[in-house]
Design a protein around this nucleic acid. Sequence first.
DNA 1: CAGGGATCGTACGGATTCAAACGAGCGCCG
DNA 2: CGGCGCTCGTTTGAATCCGTACGATCCCTG
Lengths: 190, 190
Amino acid sequence: MTGHHTLGETEQAIQRRLGDVPIRHEAMMAVSNIYRAATAIRQHVEGSVLRRADLTWTAFVVLWVVWIWEEMETRHVAEEAGISKGTLTGVVRTLEGRGLLERHQHATDGRLVLLRLTAEGETLMCDLFPAFNAEESFVAAPLSTEESASLARSLRAIVEHLEADGDDRRQSLLAGSPPPPRRSGRRPRL
Amino acid sequence: MTGHHTLGETEQAIQRRLGDVPIRHEAMMAVSNIYRAATAIRQHVEGSVLRRADLTWTAFVVLWVVWIWEEMETRHVAEEAGISKGTLTGVVRTLEGRGLLERHQHATDGRLVLLRLTAEGETLMCDLFPAFNAEESFVAAPLSTEESASLARSLRAIVEHLEADGDDRRQSLLAGSPPPPRRSGRRPRL
DNA sequence: CAGGGATCGTACGGATTCAAACGAGCGCCG
DNA sequence: CGGCGCTCGTTTGAATCCGTACGATCCCTG
């Protein structure tokens, strides 16, 4: 949206290209702006607060979730952090290697792994979180308190809608032709 | 936010953890919901429409940008798509290998590379985009037209704010202690 | 017209990311 | 109590992704 083309020019180009195709414009703008804002925010925060601690956004979110809940099973951490469990394994490996996170066994269920911050991780979060929240405030600065709250409400409605109805929607969309397996992913043992 | 813990429980846990630390709650909720919504939307669309074409979100956005502008220099494509130029090189390599995208030289400036869709890529986008927009509509379904427009406006304000003032903010934040180089990144030739 | 600085796309290194496969462990049911 | 199905975390393969370094090219100035 920045730099080379103005918003108006982009709108015009889209109209030129799609003039005869019926499009939901508000939905398109809303969705594309969600993604654009998310990217911009992530890059701003990674480039400022998280940079000093050499943490990625994902690594910080994982630390944050574990910090808030004191101790948590990995599958719940992955869900709250919005990443797959396979990704979490790698992130935890990195954070554990840096001495910020510990893995523990569950008392009765041998399959489960519990995560907890180390003392060093605890210290880091106590330092880092206020600075992180200060950047969240900076990001939301152009909005009033009520606008921020309204924004959060609308987004929550979208998230809950997708969590409630997304599966059914995807199933019905793919019902006619089950998709081919992804190009990537582990291959069956031959 | 789904599944294991309710929103209320999460709020309580945050309060318990941060009760004595002054926090901007609306900003925190707005930012975290932006990211959460972006992830949920991306996963929904990748799992439905893009899955059949075996495209990632990023690959689709790159195709979309090039499609809209007919022909475009790579640096502008990267900027519009919200990815780094290095990432774009890899994505273009993949798309070119699949015969969806072509690379051309600039007429007068030997450094520039222009991107353009092939006929096959054009056909794919004509098929794919209506389905993509239908999912955007599905995503925005819980919001009224006016709410969607308001959402887009608020997000745009955030993006423009970050583009305008983000650099200065990051500079002033890192002024005291310039950050160490990232752990990753190409190593200097020895 | 020589050369130094700026800009462009690419190569590279390390970390992340997902989907699928896998193995270990749990629990129900006969 | 034995086995079958389920759940969990990890592994694996391919693709992204970013930041930095680099070589090529352009442009400006002396």
